[in-house]
Design a protein around this nucleic acid. Sequence first.
DNA 1: AAGGCCAACTTGTTCGGACAAGTTGAAGCG
DNA 2: CGCTTCAACTTGTCCGAACAAGTTGGCCTT
Lengths: 257, 257
Amino acid sequence: MAARHEEIAEELRRAIDDEEYTVGALLPPETELAARYGVSRGTVRQAVAALTVEGLIGSRQGARRVVLASRRSQSFAELRSFAQWARAMGRAASGTVVRTETRPASAEDATRLHLRTGTDVLYVLRVRGLDGERVLVERTVYADWIAPAVLRIEPDCESVTQRLYEDMGLVFAYGEHLIDAVSAGTRDSELLGVRRGSPLLRVRRVTTTQKGRPVEWSDDRYRSDAVNFSIHNSIGSNPLARQAGPGLREPFAAPSG
Amino acid sequence: MAARHEEIAEELRRAIDDEEYTVGALLPPETELAARYGVSRGTVRQAVAALTVEGLIGSRQGARRVVLASRRSQSFAELRSFAQWARAMGRAASGTVVRTETRPASAEDATRLHLRTGTDVLYVLRVRGLDGERVLVERTVYADWIAPAVLRIEPDCESVTQRLYEDMGLVFAYGEHLIDAVSAGTRDSELLGVRRGSPLLRVRRVTTTQKGRPVEWSDDRYRSDAVNFSIHNSIGSNPLARQAGPGLREPFAAPSG
DNA sequence: AAGGCCAACTTGTTCGGACAAGTTGAAGCG
DNA sequence: CGCTTCAACTTGTCCGAACAAGTTGGCCTT
């Protein structure tokens, strides 16, 4: 028989899965949850702490708690958080910043971020791993106003999404995205450990605040055997979903002897 | 100003680093720590929870808490726990079981594990990663009496050391080890993503219970650029230390443009 | 319209207490 | 000598309370 705080934690996960609380929504205050479940604040806090560690909930003193991710829904914010997606699959995500550079935005970057051409923006190159496999190269351009907060984040931070919420109260929201395939150039092949010319899945996307202000735009390149995106045309649900590819389902072939 | 529970957590980390509590030692009971720091049990519990999450402390209801690892000392148990070593470096460790097989022990395996030849033992092949890099192939043979507990552990468990403590109350202790270099055969090169013939660092070791009963023996093969072991002949301190190699210090070369 | 202030709300921290549940070691018995 | 039992010890869970510290939104003033 699970402890009460474990039951409540599971109930909250289910509620997020079932979209009783969507990404970006505020959770009820602790006192209200305590009354609802008939327990003390301390028990609620222990339950919620588990979801916070899992990246599902963002928590800041004085502010209502917010849903940062769902295990099931594939909102765009969920796509942004590679770490949360990996966790939901029971995989270990990792990542490291290879390079950062602040320089004036090109016309294209400025347009995407709704900035004036020439405004300084932050370019960040990251490589993300999954269970010991490099699967993703991210080239992200951050708007000038968010750049200082991003620079404060440690290079191996597991979830930039969570960190930006904790530091800035920032919750990501819907943005545009484009998916296509490219072949690995010299740099990408080095970073991902694949042969040059290998196919990569490219996702170009813009992430905004919930009010629509662009935060970042990114060019993500996935090893095509590691991750694929499924698109289901169905009413009411987000048709875009990322899923593990054949290269990762069973990462290592079983030996013969 | 940090919270009191954060200060106490840091104080405990320091005490473990300074070997006030060595690996395998019991921590004082909560009530004693509370009295010592002049706080309540709840505050101590919150401090200790942080170290438990970090893998430094093992906790089981009803039993005194035990030190499982130190950030600084390099006891043999510490070498065993690749996950804890990675954490201490601020890296993300990962791992997965490639293959498990139960079969009668060879004469060599039986000898190392103090078993009769022909006793069934458990062979486990794992690949471990560090920040998205595969760096280690582990071939471990577990004694028959521990095999069921190992089989219950999920294949992507981050720290087998911690899990075996939680499930069995088992704390690893001193064992013999041999370090040499071998070249990557076909299998190892596939598993590690290196060229055949590449040099690998091989560590063969036996891990025992604190009473000296062999638990496992393992053949670990590291990418030689990723990890090296330093040996310092100094009185009183453990001369063996694992450290990150040039292949991992800065995992990805900074791009020129 | 913008900025400052403040009350209300919310989370974070700490407390002392009570009880549940698991572990351990010693003592007694066969 | 080995097994069983049990008291003592220890961690885990839950409680209600009090206060600290941060956020938010509305109101008032400029």
